[in-house]
Design a protein around this nucleic acid. Structure first.
Length: 232
DNA sequence: CCCCAGGCGTCCA
DNA sequence: TGGACGCATGGG
């Protein structure tokens, strides 16, 4: 299904032939970023919820607390009291919401035969089921699908939107699924590529493509619309 | 003191 | 369908 090119954004989309070049440039700059190496699906799933609009440093504390309490599993969370979960994940912020969400998510998974059985479903069905749960939206669903379940689904986040906006002039208000389709149409379908590309974009956004960008030192300054505009 | 961080659900037009 | 708002801790 081709992406429809329309209006003033038609021309920047044509530049997406550079997408793989952009990835390779980032990879040569940051190296291969191995997110979640050897970690359990349970830990990755829980981390995906805890990191919602939250600095990763704080999530690490919450995960460490859960681990020490023997609660870093879908099964343990499903059987724990909300108050108990809240106490452990407090450093990750929004802790009452996240505790309630995690509990509901984990209970649903346990009631349906556990995580390994859950992840055996095909990506499309799994995505719909995840999205139906309270506390899981587009990004969290896709993070779980890619990093925990090992499905070929590209993750879009606020960093991805910002970078695509600045480099290619794609509107930041473009819908999640639209931007996801544009990107997956521009690179080959590969789980390791999807994993590393997303990680590279996060790294770029943290180091250079911040809200107040550091275009002068940015590895993408050579082919970024924003870096080469008068505003940068 | 301020702003920000790997979103999401709810409410409202 | 889309914008405003609440949720909360910890670091710069």
């Amino acid at each position: 299904m081709p992406v429809r090119l329309a209006g003033k954004n038609a021309s920047p989309y044509a530049r997406l032939g550079n997408l793989k070049v952009l990835y390779l440039k980032l990879k040569s700059e940051f190296g291969f970023l191995d997110w979640w190496p050897g970690e359990t699906p349970d830990k990755i799933l829980i981390g995906a919820v805890l990191t919602q609009n939250t600095a990763w440093k704080n999530v690490e504390k919450a995960i460490s607390n859960l681990e020490k309490a023997g609660m870093l599993s879908v099964c343990a969370i499903a059987g724990a009291e909300n108050k108990t979960i809240e106490a452990e994940i407090r450093p990750s912020g929004f802790y009452r919401q996240k505790a309630a969400h995690l509990k509901g998510i984990c209970m649903h998974i346990e009631e349906n035969g556990g995580l390994s059985r859950f992840f055996r479903k095909d990506a499309h069905e799994l995505r719909l089921e995840l999205m139906a749960l309270n506390g899981i939206g587009n990004e969290t669903a896709d993070s779980i699908l890619l990093y925990a379940a090992g499905k070929p689904v590209f993750v879009i986040d606020a960093y991805t939107k910002r970078i695509m906006s600045r480099v290619y002039g794609i509107s930041e208000r473009l819908g999640y699924l639209s931007l996801q389709q544009i990107i997956t149409n521009g690179i080959e379908k590969s789980i390791p590529l999807y994993k590393d590309f997303h990680a590279q974009l996060v790294e770029l956004a943290k180091r250079y493509c911040r809200k107040k960008p550091l275009c002068g030192e940015c590895p993408l300054r050579g082919f970024c619309l924003y870096a080469n505009s008068s505003r940068a």
